[in-house]
């Protein structure tokens, strides 16, 4: 997620702090736009299916490469390529669920077994992409646009569209969860799958729809990451732990938390890049994750109190 910092003119002679803040706002928001939707998707997947799917990062990669295929090989406009990629990635997700995970879930294996299996699945996706496209980075073919000042922000029109799409889609998902039948079914299945069966809910269908949504969001995230940086087979794997950081900050099964967590993580990462060291921005997301796990494992919106005692007195505590 190395965004094109070159689009931005450097003001060397002017007030550095002011521009650092401006950088933070703009890049923070852009990083947020790349993280928010995949972290929301991963959150929904975990919320409903109750296991950590570590292939999700590679599904993000697949989304980016499917869009790349449309955009570069078939010369389709990036917007339409995005839509096609959403559909194809969703299809991929459903395929993986039906072929690999469904049988294991029905056999009632534990979440850890599913996690291990998902690693294998991720390995396969990543290397199929590698064989198809090679290790070199790619970029989308997008019309060249100039960045403009917008209040304290500094964005190209493409970037504004990305941020808007991100916010609108997130709101759409929230409304869907709150007010539609599918949203109710997803929440019910998340609460208690065996009661859902008793009530007559086909949880297999709910899992399928959840994967469609989660993978669609992964595709958007992958394309956005590609728009701001480069597209390469390892991009999703790199992003995966960052996505988990977003989720853990916000509370792992809380969709609102996933988006807020993405916002916090994005700004923490960009602040690190500006004031500490750019290569360590991903590490700052991990450190944030460990910090939250240490003091408040249920995330910032969790019910439990902050457990400073773990942080301060861990050597003396027994359990």
């Amino acid at each position: 997620m190395n965004r094109g910092r070159k689009t931005r003119p450097r003001h060397s002679s002017q007030d550095g702090v002011y521009f650092a803040m401006e950088d933070l706002l703009s890049y923070g928001l852009l990083t947020f736009a790349t993280l928010a939707l995949p972290s929301l998707g991963l959150c929904l997947a975990i919320k409903v299916t109750k296991y950590f799917n570590l292939a999700y990062g590679d599904i993000v990669t697949a989304g980016a490469f499917l869009a790349l295929l449309m955009n570069l090989s078939f010369k389709i406009n990036i917007g339409i390529a995005l839509l096609i990629s959403i559909a194809l990635t969703a299809l991929l997700g459903v395929f993986l669920h039906k072929v690999v995970f469904k049988a294991l879930m029905e056999a009632k294996v534990g979440p850890l077994t599913l996690l291990v299996v998902s690693l294998g699945v991720g390995l396969v996706i990543r290397n199929v992409v590698l064989i198809g496209w090679g290790p070199q980075p790619y970029q989308f073919n997008t019309p060249l646009t100039r960045a403009k000042h917008l209040g304290p922000f500094f964005f190209t029109p493409n970037q504004i569209v990305m941020i808007l799409i991100c916010i609108l889609v997130a709101i759409g998902i929230f409304l869907m969860l709150r007010y539609t039948q599918l949203g109710r079914l997803m929440r019910a299945t998340s609460d208690n799958p065996s009661l859902s069966l008793i009530r007559g809910i086909s949880i297999e269908k709910v899992y399928t729809y959840t994967w469609i949504i989660a993978c669609g969001l992964a595709a958007i995230g992958g394309v956005f990451m590609g728009m701001l940086g480069t597209i390469k087979p390892g991009m999703g794997e790199e992003a995966l732990v960052t996505l988990f950081a977003c989720l853990i900050v916000g509370g792992i099964e809380n969709p609102y938390g996933a988006v807020v967590g993405a916002l916090i993580t994005a700004f923490a990462m960009e602040a690190t890049a500006i004031w500490i060291s750019p290569p360590y921005k991903v590490v700052s997301a991990y450190l944030l994750m460990f910090f939250i796990l240490l003091i408040k494992p249920s995330g910032i919106f969790g019910r439990e109190k902050i457990q400073w005692k773990y942080f301060l007195g861990f050597l003396r505590s027994r359990q």
Binding site: L185, R187, S190, N192, L195, R199, G200, I201
Partner: peptide, 20 residues
């Protein structure tokens, strides 16, 4: 035990009762 969905509202719970 766990005979209701705790994170759904009462109305939504009843609505889940006749999902089909």
């Amino acid at each position: 035990e766990e005979s209701i969905f705790p994170s759904l509202t009462v109305f939504e719970n009843l609505r889940m009762g006749s999902v089909k």
